[in-house]
Design a protein around this nucleic acid. Structure first.
Ligand SMILES: Nc1nc2c(ncn2[C@H]2C[C@H](O)[C@@H](COP(=O)(O)OP(=O)(O)OP(=O)(O)O)O2)c(=O)[nH]1
Ligand SMILES: [Mg+2]
Ligand SMILES: [Mg+2]
Ligand SMILES: [Zn+2]
Length: 571
DNA sequence: GCCGTTTTCGGCCCGACTGTTTTCAGTCG
């Protein structure tokens, strides 16, 4: 799928046009179209072929022509010309915090500065302060921005932000004058990576709260501090934003601060259409500015004629339209999960005994757990031989006898070899209570080869689950190049459940593909891929991803009771 | 550049903080 590629070009065009000084609304049009294409529920190539580009909201005549050219030829003449006019190296300067398109244009036009190195030199020599709108402090800030560029421009995995965020919340909770408190932003939406931690509080004494906020033990420096909004940077360079509002605005502020930005813009547009104004202080009558509501988030959605939209859905991927028609999914909840079907024991590369895993599962309120050790040829992961499988089965039987209303399932995570055959033959596969398959070696393959490899694996009659379908490792390894529509089709044909792997650097399937697959009637399972007991708590990130993919309880295998699972696996 | 049950032209989400100004532009959320 070229969707991301097309979107990236449009975002770059927007940035270049910004620096060129084009009017704001034009560049925003490029960005809105890019966002729509990025989250489109089908392949942009199909849309181009079928001449349906104009059906995408935000794509008009001019953009449709450019997108068509880009998809068909892999090149956009307008973009190439623009790059000759505005040096594309300037785009890197946008990553310097405090520096935007206007200031970049100024240093380029007035001083001919094209690179960050030239910019640094000019700032050090005090050559920037003479420009209109620049001063000595601007120079200092630019220099610091350049120094911190590598450190601060990155995003972190959801679990990292989750722990930092909740620790900060615990600290803030201790302040007596905070009335209500919540995580907000991408962390409340449980996005797979987090740019910064956003926190909202309500209080009558915002200044006191801000003083307390910046005194947190882990604060490295204060970026800004006002009476409604402050930002700090933690020692590991993670930024934290705090907004403080009056308690009667808490709901409106939570709606605002949870985002996403695109969701907010659409909400505010809807408000305008209905004769209101929506901001972080409340919902107001358009003309008279009379306060209508703001205390609770639910009220905001209700007054706009919408069903309540769960934070995980607020990405402007059709949730507002669905809320209008009351067609939102009833999202799966964490306590719908009845078991974990992807856990490694010390039989392969896990750290824990089967007994310890079973005990942990009971503590989590599960009815079953699937022990899925690696298969024989994965030597580095201590894959199991036939003899070891027999031994493991015996041990599981023994422990199961001791447990009431709980069952350990003897599974496997069988490797899919490059040719699509499985690492165990059928005589071994049928020994397991269920079979999960996955790719663990030879990732570099053409799209066609990799797609066929997986489909061939799923076609084996003993296979129940495809683990971590795209094999991506965020910040480490790109996903396999796959024809996802074909994978989804095959999953449905062969009755194979697609895993949402909950391990924080996998989250694979991701939210986007999950939604796509659901639209093709695929079924799922959420597994943690745990190698230690703590890893089994990763389930929350898997459930969050499922929710972001619009999944309901009935879409997910491991929301089934033990009885149902035994029927499905024919045990 | 897009869009339209009041518009095919004139709107386009709305506000906080900083540093530069002497009333506001730029950047960010
Ligand atoms: N109405 C409106 N709200 C915005 C805008 N920019 C940001 N917000 C709101 C929605 C965001 O979720 C929230 C926090 O902003 P962030 O920049 O931290 O974005 P977010 O947390 O969604 O993503 P992140 O992972 O931090 O990059 O503030 C905007 O331009 N307009
Ligand atoms: Mg954020
Ligand atoms: Mg933020
Ligand atoms: Zn695996």
């Amino acid at each position: 799928m070229k969707n991301q590629l097309v979107a990236d070009v449009l975002y770059q065009v927007a940035d270049l046009l910004d620096i060129k000084g084009e009017i704001f609304f034009k560049t925003r049009a490029y960005r809105m179209a890019a966002q729509k294409i990025e989250t489109l529920n089908e392949d942009i190539e199909t849309v181009v072929k079928e001449n349906r580009l104009r059906e995408i909201p935000g794509v008009g005549e001019a953009l449709a022509k450019k997108i068509k050219e880009l998809v068909e030829t892999g090149r956009l003449e307008y973009f190439e010309k623009l790059k000759k006019e505005i040096p594309p190296e300037l785009l890197k300067m946008l990553d310097i915090s405090g520096l935007g398109p206007k200031k970049i244009a100024a240093v380029y036009n007035k001083l001919g500065i094209k690179t960050i190195e030239e910019l640094r030199k000019a700032a050090e020599e005090g050559k920037l302060r003479n420009l209109e709108g620049f001063g000595e402090i601007t120079e200092k800030n630019i220099l610091r921005g350049i120094r911190l560029m590598d450190k601060t421009s990155g995003r972190v995995l959801l679990n990292v932000a989750y722990h930092h965020g909740n620790k900060y919340i615990e600290y803030l909770k201790k302040h007596k004058k905070i009335k209500r408190l919540s995580l907000a932003g991408s962390l409340r939406r449980m996005k797979e990576t987090i740019g910064d931690i956003d926190i909202l509080a309500s209080s009558d004494e915002p200044d006191e709260i801000m003083d307390y906020f910046v005194k947190y033990y882990d604060v490295q420096r204060i970026l800004m501090k006002g009476s409604t909004k402050s930002s700090v940077v933690l020692n590991d360079e993670l930024q934290v934003d705090l907004r403080v509002v009056d308690d009667k605005s808490f709901g409106a502020a939570l709606q605002y601060f949870t985002g996403s930005k695109e969701h907010n813009v659409q909400m505010r547009n809807l408000a305008i259409k209905k004769g209101f104004k929506l901001n972080e202080y409340g919902l107001f009558k358009k003309n008279t500015d009379t306060f209508i509501t703001g205390r609770n988030e639910e009220e905001i959605y209700k007054k706009l004629g919408l069903a309540f939209i769960e934070p995980e859905l607020r990405e402007n991927r059709g949730e507002i339209e669905a809320a209008k028609e009351n067609k939102l999914p009833r999202l799966v909840k964490h306590d719908d999960i009845k078991g974990d079907l992807h856990v490694h024991s010390n039989y392969s590369d896990g750290f824990e005994t089967i007994e310890a895993i079973a005990e942990k599962s009971l503590r989590l309120g599960y009815q079953y757990v699937g022990i899925t050790d690696h298969s024989q040829s994965l030597r580095v992961a201590h894959g199991l031989s036939k003899e070891q499988i027999v031994k493991k089965k015996k041990e599981i039987e023994k422990i199961n006898k001791k447990l009431d209303n709980f069952r350990i399932l003897c599974g496997t995570e069988c490797d899919i070899k490059p040719d699509g055959t499985l690492d165990y033959d059928n005589s071994i596969l049928k020994m397991f209570d269920f079979v999960m398959i996955g790719i663990h070696t030879s990732f570099k393959m053409s799209r066609k080869e990799a797609t066929n490899r997986i489909i061939r694996g799923m076609e084996n009659r003993y296979v129940n689950i495809l683990a971590h379908p795209t094999c991506r490792l965020m910040m480490k390894r790109e996903p396999l190049d796959l024809d996802m529509e074909k994978i989804f089709e095959a999953a449905k044909e062969t009755n194979t459940y697609l895993e949402i792997n909950a391990f924080p650097d996998r989250l694979d399937l991701n939210d986007y593909y999950t939604k796509l697959a659901k639209e093709q009637k695929v079924k799922f399972t959420v597994g943690t891929d745990a190698h230690s007991l703590n890893h089994m708590d990763f389930m929350r990130y898997g459930v969050a991803t499922a929710r972001r993919g619009w999944l309901e309880k009935k879409d997910i295998l491991n929301t089934c009771t033990l009885k149902e699972i035994e029927r499905i696996f024919e045990l």
